[in-house]
Amino acid sequence: MDELESPQGGYYVEPPELLARNLNVGARLFIAAQIFFYGGFLFAFFYLRELNTGGMWHPDRVDAPVGWGAAISACVVASALVSGAAIAAMRRRDDAAWRPGAAVALALGAAALALQCIEWATLGFGAGDGGFASVFVAWTGFYMAFGLLGGLYWLETTLATSIRHRGEAPGLVVAAAEAPAGARGTKALTAPSAEAATINLYFLAVVSVVMFILLYVVG
């Protein structure tokens, strides 16, 4: 037990899988909070649609381009699915297979962001064009600027850590519970962090599908 003695003379038994569990639980709680955040948009959408004040819910000139929306959503969904598939490799302790998967997932997510920016730049209406336009601009805006960008940041940190340590003992990027002695700190966090980030991506994918249906199809 020697190496486990703490400065106070006791010993540490912070269970190693604790970090993993924290991240896992944290990701789910974070999703719960996001449900309420995006739920607010959902509420605004149907509420304003119902009221249609001044007949300004959705004037005819406001037209969200379905093609763009489909492309963006497809990218986000693909990103989440790829990331999920890659996690399977990581569970097999095959970081070499996980890393390309994560990189592709990141690229797809970035593509969604880029497409969204182009869509905004070429949009035929502005934020001030009534209720629908408001919901459209704000929802896509917050989703992209905070939701997706944040989700991608999370995934990126795990990939970056894994790449930096790629030469080290294999299986470093596994669940912390099985991490070899000496794996410490954020390194040991990599695997659970990637899993948690993927759960979050799944959620973001669901949101993007909902957004696609409401903002582009239902209108």
Partner: peptide, 15 residues
């Protein structure tokens, strides 16, 4: 310039 809460512009203070 959105109009979430502006009555008559597609929004509503009720929201």
């Amino acid at each position: 310039g959105t109009s979430f809460f502006l009555a008559g512009l597609g929004g509503s203070p009720f929201l």
